[in-house]
Amino acid sequence: MASWLFYILGTVAVVATAMAVTRRNPVHAVIYLVNSFFALALIFYLLGAPLVAAWEVIIYAGAIMVLFLFIIMMLELSPGEEADRQGPGPLQWLPVLLLGGVLLVCILLLLQLDPASGQELPRWYASPRDFGYALFHKYALAVEVVSFQLLFAAVGAFYVGRAASRKEQPGGEQ
């Protein structure tokens, strides 16, 4: 039963990602991507990571994709001026598809050659309690460092995206 679920969810994820990647309208792409993330979250639950699944939805689909939507709307691209008006044509897609195909073949071959990859994934379940324990005991330092990193990112984003300084205005500073 679980394996059937896995394959269905996998198909959904792939199709949704493919749609997201090929849309002309970025908002449509974001919606499709959220769909894909939902499927992935369910796959994570199947693999025994319920906490990770929750976070996938909360952080990835809930925060990051929403941020994308905010920025898309903020950029105020007029409909006529939208980048990718035509979208890349088949002339652009074909070489990249070819490259992707070759890479896929290489990866498949590598998987075939590796004897250890045929193992079946066991059923298991990582309880939040165990997860929390591991996170705040074994990886406590990493948690602190990541929190610093989020601070830097916030400061950086604030600085990069600040309003245009008065120097750029024609009036000039008095």
């Binding site: 990571a49 990835y60 941020l67 990193q149 950086g156 995206g161």
Partner: peptide, 20 residues
């Protein structure tokens, strides 16, 4: 799984800066 959570944290940081 722990690495994945860190990955998500860092990704969010990275996305905020790149969108800025």
């Amino acid at each position: 799984q722990v690495i994945v959570i860190f990955l998500m944290a860092l990704t969010s940081a990275e996305v905020s800066i790149s969108l800025a």
